[in-house]
Design a protein around this nucleic acid. Structure first.
Lengths: 217, 217
DNA sequence: GCGCGAATTCGCACTGAGTGCGATATCAAA
DNA sequence: TTTGATATCGCACTCAGTGCGAATTCGCGC
């Protein structure tokens, strides 16, 4: 079906090196198939109305097997969240020149990776992600995870900076991303034709951020 | 049991004005009792191990009645999140002088209200809130709600400012609160005696924020 | 005081998510 | 080819949450 999304993350074991054997590929394929059919059914009937049995049946596996690959129904949808963004942000940041402040580097990274959120599937998944309170919540939690990961990577790249400082920088970056994404979504909903790309909204949000901050009393 | 937390928010109807009658008080009491016994049982046995039947029984109501007051088991715990903070932030901000920038005003408000997070119950509830993935997620979602409310109040107080700007300011304030709370929690876990109050951490985080921002390229 | 309508309480049956357990099958490597 | 790990599956069970409708209680106008 679609081509990019759920991370290869296996159920439990961590494949260290090696050329992946037949078994690994099969696992990958199965997980992908579940994610695909899951998203498909969610889009057709909505999240809540789609039962686990339906997904399992459509994916050609037993109900029990589903839980071998995903911990919950929500996780199937969550796997599509920002398709591959989480995996890309780290490497991208490490390629940034280190002579600029962390936040500026993060800003640049986000602008580059913004396109990942603008695919049809990403948008569809995001709409589903807003159909339920818990889904919305889990999405936000995932962004906070992303924030912590980002701070982690920053700590590698700028070892001399205090970790608290980097946590703040990461919070700003991901926070800006969240707000920009929201603006962008509204923009699209209102003017589907003349809507500006996410990167534009991101720039605008960062600009506001700069003007906002010296919170001088 | 405890004295402050779950908002009087009735199941569905919105009491407009009037002096509250016997009925309203009973409803309030029942909801309070459910929240109390719920938190109590959660603290004793953990969130997941506590069944709805147990809560209902301990609160002296039928299982079905529980759902008349709360939409889910999670909501019982969520009701304790930042006890009364959400209700207090709005009025507090409206009392701030309007001649300072919104973010500075928010900063000042948060410093005043920080003590609300430092009560025994608030800390206990917060620990529970981190025992499950969905709970953690819902807590974050609630903070984002708080962020939106804050921006809303700001829009009333500073009508001349653009709403996007205020959204950013609110994001910064709540984001800082979240990070500061985290630092504060770690601080307490490590040095239960010499730990600094939340307000201190909050100041520090805001200070970092100021130094962080001009994200000049 | 009386009774009407709304708010509240409750029981019952049902769906569906998620888990524990253990059996079977399949594959990779020795 | 044996062997151990990985993967698939079925079954039975717990528990959260919902729909439906009955019974009760309360506030209020008459």
């Amino acid at each position: 079906m679609d081509t990019a999304p759920p991370s290869p993350a296996p159920p439990s074991p961590t494949t260290p090196g090696k050329t992946e054997g037949l078994r690994d590929r099969k696992r990958r394929e199965t997980m992908q198939r579940i994610a695909d059919t899951g998203l498909k059914l969610f889009m057709e009937n909505g999240f809540e109305a789609t039962t686990l049995d339906a997904i399992a049946a459509a994916a050609g596996i037993a109900r029990r097997t589903f839980f071998y690959y995903f911990k919950s129904k929500e996780d199937v949808l969550l796997a599509w969240q920002g398709s591959g963004f989480v995996e890309a942000i780290g490497p991208a940041l490490l390629q940034e020149p280190a002579d600029q402040p962390p936040l500026a580097a993060a800003r640049h990274c986000l602008l580059t990776l913004a396109a990942r959120f603008e695919t049809k599937t990403s948008i569809a998944a995001d709409a589903l992600l807003r159909s339920t309170e818990t889904l919305r919540a889990r999405k936000l939690a995932k962004m906070v995870d992303m924030e912590r990961d980002l701070a982690q990577v920053m700590a590698e790249r700028w070892p001399d900076r205090a970790t608290e400082e980097l946590r703040v920088a990461a919070m700003l970056a991901i926070g800006a991303l969240r707000l920009a994404q929201e603006e962008w979504r509204h923009d699209h909903a209102a003017h589907p034709d003349t809507a500006r790309p996410l990167a534009e909204h991101l720039k605008a949000t960062f600009a506001l951020l700069d003007r906002q901050v010296p919170s001088a009393t």
